[in-house]
Design a protein around this nucleic acid. Structure first.
Lengths: 273, 273
DNA sequence: ACAAAAGTGTTTCCAATACACCCATGA
DNA sequence: TCATGGGTGTATTGGAAACACTTTTGT
């Protein structure tokens, strides 16, 4: 039972039951029917929200694992430090948003970037409810360029000397550190933090910093070379000692086949949780 | 320099510079200032989106790992199978939304639920751009009640016999299976799938199904009991054999201390990725 | 008694650890 | 030639895997 009428320039069609609507629309083909059906039933009256991404950027300077933060040059929270973030735009995925934002901060592309967690407490942003999809990024600190937008200052911090952060950003960092260990136990992720050529003692520094422990240098060296993932170079780095340490490169061909051996490098793997 | 005027019933206040605005507002206290400031500068003109959650529900019937799907009883995609999902409401976090939705489907509360990944391709939902925060849930299949809303049918599927799913739900399931192995390697997660009392051969079935392999029954039994996580009960389950297998319970006191030993149960831990 | 699954005992072997030692080189 | 960090050799050991064997009990 359908009633059609006209009020001014508008047509009004009244359906008594939903099935009448479906029958009526089915003449228009299934696609159009589906579209209308969904809009009118399922998606109707649903609230829309802001969606942001925030990036936890890790770097390694040869000695220590560090994190990149920006200082807000504007209100609110002017002078406080925060992660680099921004809103997801209509035409991009969250991954694309994270890449775009990271490029804006560091000038780098092709960075290792992995989704961490969505933070979604309704009150986490005091201004307006915002979902934040957090990402952690690993960058070779030497490739990083300081050509920054002058809206914000960016600075590297030792993890032990990190300042207070806005909103729930400290929680994000804490989760990212945990996930970094967790992932690094299973995947040769940490090479993303190193330049193309690196020495084994340097690699050991990095592992020790990430896992907050120390390794026997002999065993570390033997284990990492026995994975077959590393290609020994002819040159040595003589900055660190008289004898010098050979440079290595990651062998990208054998990378995928042997990375599972990274696992054995990790102390107390079960304690990662 | 501020200009105030009145047009009809509206007051109009014009600030020459942003600093004038800040000064003027600071009399109202920092909270109000911050709120106005952010609304006017940072959040202005940002697009808002729908945010949904989708749950991948795993269960174990004693023999096989299964997944719970619902059949859509309405258009669009009527008759196709999908994960259980729904939109996040304004006053709830994504975790809370997932719990609510899962309770609606299974009647269960206190279920193990963990955030998996956000799916965010702009075109993933053909009707309107929707972010989906996926969760995986582990439930004891015996506690599950079939008192379902008659809007949809729910059914358990063997993972090997899963039907086609709508949108990108198949990708979600595939990621959830991977994450289940990954997490189970580090955490005694799989106990969530079992009833309070269970036998070791049952536990072995579950592990074998999750890790898609077989274990030596002797070694499995010895390893799992040596973790100290299990409390032997007096009764046996004689359904599976003449001799019968002792029931065990999870010792929740020693749970946290010993779960790292779960790790050694896993074959080729490095291959989990 | 026998079948069938649960669970134990025992051997083998590999790989993680510890640590002593050798190596290469600049000062 | 000696100090310094890089890297190797090697004994020890804990525990994972293999598998034969024993236990329990319904039929």
């Amino acid at each position: 039972m359908i009633l059609q009428t006209k009020v001014g320039k508008k047509f009004i069609i009244v359906f008594n039951t939903i099935n009448f609507l479906r029958n009526w629309f089915s003449g228009a083909g299934p696609l159009l029917l589906n579209r209308f059906w969904l809009v009118m039933t399922r998606y109707k009256n649903q609230k829309h929200f802001l969606v942001a991404v925030d990036c936890i950027v890790f770097g390694f300077d040869g000695q220590n694992l560090k994190i990149l933060l920006i200082k807000r040059g504007f209100e609110p929270q002017k002078g406080k430090w925060s992660l680099m973030g921004g809103f997801v735009q209509p035409e991009e995925s969250a991954d694309e948003a994270a890449s775009r934002i990271l490029k804006g901060l560091t000038g780098l592309e092709g960075v290792y970037l992995e989704q961490l967690h969505v933070f979604s407490k309704p009150e986490r942003d005091p201004i307006e409810r915002t979902f934040s999809i957090s990402y952690f990024a690993l960058i070779d600190i030497l490739r990083y360029q300081t050509q920054l937008n002058d809206e914000y200052h960016a600075e590297w911090f030792l993890l032990s000397e990190m300042p207070d952060l806005i909103f729930d950003h400290a929680e994000m960092v804490s989760m990212a550190r945990k996930k970094l260990r967790y992932r690094a136990a299973m995947h040769p992720l940490l090479f993303e933090l190193l330049p193309e050529r690196f020495t084994i003692p340097l690699l050991q520094n990095l592992f020790e910093d990430v896992f907050e422990t120390t390794f026997d240098k002999g065993n570390f060296s033997r284990k990492i070379t026995s994975t077959g993932m590393l290609l020994k170079q002819k040159e040595k780095d003589k900055a660190g000692s008289k004898k010098g340490a050979f440079y290595f490169k990651l062998d990208k061909r054998h990378y995928r086949k042997n990375f599972h051996k990274v696992h054995s490098l990790v102390p107390n793997p079960g304690e990662l949780i």
